[in-house]
Design a protein around this nucleic acid. Structure first.
Length: 584
RNA sequence: GGUGGCGUAGUUCAGUUGGUUAGAAUGCCGGCCUGUCACGCCGGAGGUCGCGAGUUCGAGUCUCGUCGUCACCGCCA
């Protein structure tokens, strides 16, 4: 028996008990005639002690110990003469009778403690050591707890957890596929799923009615702090439901998670049309923890001989509360910030609403106090506030103002990580025009149903057709999305038509789904949440890497085992592959 | 594919206008220490300044390239 107790459970009630503990050496404090050893496992830390009453052989063994040695210690629980209130086991210690090294340790490259001295690179290279740290392990414990809560909720609601294949067929549209060569079928490839989309729809045709799966998905695209090449979705699909039913079910799930995991009651989720999100927040994933809405002031600022505004398609403004005292340097900083290539604005106009009711702007030459007052009224600015204005191409400016809004909120500390504001963004456009290839793409995916009242516009103005598609957004993070699906094969062929598929291509790519729909497809709809993002949001983290046990870096590499890596020529031969690596 | 930040001791970092032998903290090793818990005190070892060119009498420092890493843009239905 390696242990009778864990390192986190002994208390004053256990005094006098002989116990056996196993764990890692956290720290050794050698005071000469007396030595303390902190023994750690995932449950906590227990202090071992050796003094003049301890057998000599134990003290000798102790001298060999170093940080992160795995040891087994046998001894008696006794009360400390000086207690440590900071740890749960701080009232007791173990007077050692014997100690055994189960496994020695090299000196670790960084300290295994909450405030480690290790940088990110090093921690990733030695991720198994990093995971020993309580702060990192807590994130994965949270993840496990959340997965458990999801299964509880959906199982109780009658959902069937079903696995779908990982080796599937590559389809066009969407992200790049990761691809796997088939040995038994020379020259042919599987793809790894970007999501189990078609399979879950087939399960609906199969009559499963309510499906879910916590499932790995794969996308071969460039990475970000909140994007990994393999990530986990809470994937769901339901039959005989409308949009409202899906949103109710998953709002219920989300609220249950907040309550169960964080003990937070969140308000009912508002529904915001995509168009409103874009106009007021400059984003399809608005952060609604704070206001600072975007105002269209085009009408009131034009025609005053300020050529920059007069020649602009759109002039928009946000009001930063209490920022009228911004210095020249701060305003220049903001101007430079919006001029960066990532934002790409030409400039920034400001209006300071002074405490005395007067206005000071960078365009005083063109606008009177009366006119600036109208700006303030339109944007809701009061004395002490700062109005920030940008002009140019409408879509571009909404985007830029949206970014500026977030930046100002960051500067003003309005994005409290402990506050959660979920909402549904609904009525997304069905299609998106792509300039490069001169064709429409499905904004969500090709099986998304248009809103019934917009179907006539499919022929006349496809770009204006709205979809029965929805996203769950929390604090400016897109947590998940879904749509009501097309289950009518005629409407589906029309969609493929609009997307530029020939009959033959549609048949080749999606034929099996179309075939399935010939045999009685129920009306159905679904949704998928990004599980990693949801966990990182619950943990108040900015990166999903910290909620994944073994994540990949920015370049999609696993720096611990150095994947991806070349394979042997024999393997290539067996797979009928010849490399054609381009020289740089 | 693009823009920017970073790369100096095991680790986290400092390093002035380009100027003698590149520093600090921590970790590591040795010694002392009976109530520590970030123990304390004394001593010691530890460096391809990412790599390669270039400018210069002289480069950790400036220039160019390259590699690694992080953030963002493009991309991600």
């Amino acid at each position: 028996m390696y242990r009778t107790h864990t390192c986190g459970e002994l208390r004053i009630e256990n005094l006098g008990t002989e116990v056996t503990l196993s764990g890692w050496v956290q720290r050794i404090r050698d005071l000469g005639a007396m030595t303390f050893v902190d023994l750690r496992d995932r449950y906590g830390i227990t202090q071992l002690v050796v003094d003049e009453n301890t057998d000599k052989s134990v003290a000798e063994n102790l001298e060999k110990l170093g940080r992160e040695f795995v040891i087994q210690a046998i001894g008696t629980v006794r009360e400390r003469s000086s207690k440590n209130k900071n740890i749960a086991t701080g009232d007791v210690e173990i007077a050692l009778k014997s100690i055994q090294i189960l496994s020695p340790s090299a000196v670790p490259p960084f300290t295994i403690q909450d405030d480690t001295d290790g940088g990110d690179d090093l921690r990733m290279k030695y991720r198994y050591l990093d995971l020993r740290r309580t702060v990192v392990r807590k994130n994965l414990e949270l993840r496990a707890k959340m997965a458990h809560a999801i299964r509880n909720y959906l199982n109780a609601d009658g959902f069937i957890e079903t696995e779908t294949p990982v080796l599937i067929k590559s389809t066009p549209e969407g992200a790049r596929d990761f691809v796997v060569p088939s040995r038994m079928n020379p020259g042919e490839f599987y793809a790894l799923p970007q999501s189990p989309q078609m399979f879950k729809q087939l399960l609906m045709v199969a009559g499963f009615d309510k499906y879910y799966q916590i499932v790995k998905c794969f996308r071969d695209e460039d990475l970000r702090a909140d994007r990994q090449p393999e990530f986990t979705q809470i994937d769901c699909e339901m039959s005989f439901v409308e949009q409202k039913d899906v949103l109710e079910t998953f709002e219920g799930l989300t609220r249950y998670m907040f309550k169960e995991v964080l003990d937070i009651d969140v308000d009912e989720f508002p529904w915001m049309p995509y168009s409103e999100a874009m106009e007021k927040y400059g984003s399809d994933k608005p952060d609604t923890r704070f206001e600072m809405l975007i105002n269209d002031i085009s009408e009131i600022v034009k025609g005053k001989d300020f050529v920059v505004f007069d020649s602009a398609e759109y002039i928009g403004a946000i009001c930063a509360k209490g920022c009228a005292e911004y210095t020249r340097k701060q305003l220049d900083g903001l101007t430079n910030w919006v001029k960066r290539p990532q934002i790409g604005a030409k400039g920034l106009v400001y209006v300071k609403c002074n405490a005395d009711g007067s206005y000071k702007s960078s365009v005083d030459k063109f606008y009177s106090q009366e006119e600036l007052k109208l700006w303030a009224e339109t944007t809701g600015a009061e004395a002490g506030d700062l109005i920030l204005v940008m002009s140019g191409d409408k879509n571009h400016m909404l985007d830029a103002l949206g970014e500026l809004r977030l930046e100002m909120a960051n500067q003003l500390g309005l994005r409290d990580k402990k506050v959660f504001k979920p909402l549904w963004v609904v009525d997304f456009p069905l299609l998106e025009w792509d300039e490069e290839s001169q064709r429409f793409f499905a904004m969500h995916h090709p099986f998304t149903s248009p809103k019934p009242e917009d179907i006539p516009m499919l022929d006349t103005a496809p770009g204006k057709v709205r979809a029965n598609a929805y996203d769950l957004v929390i604090n400016g993070v897109e947590i998940g999305g879904g749509s009501v699906r097309i289950f009518d094969s005629e409407l589906q062929s029309k969609m493929f038509d609009l997307l530029g598929f020939t009959k033959k291509q549609a048949e080749e790519q999606f034929g099996f789904l179309m075939n399935a729909f010939k045999y009685g497809a129920p009306p159905h709809a679904g949704i998928a949440f990004g599980f990693d993002r949801l966990v990182s949001l619950f943990a108040s983290l900015d990166t999903i890497r910290d909620v994944i046990a073994f994540p990949k870096n920015n370049s999609g590499r696993d720096v611990m085992n150095d994947a991806p890596a070349p394979i042997a020529k024999e393997q290539l031969d067996e797979l009928n592959l010849i490399l054609n690596t381009k020289e740089k």
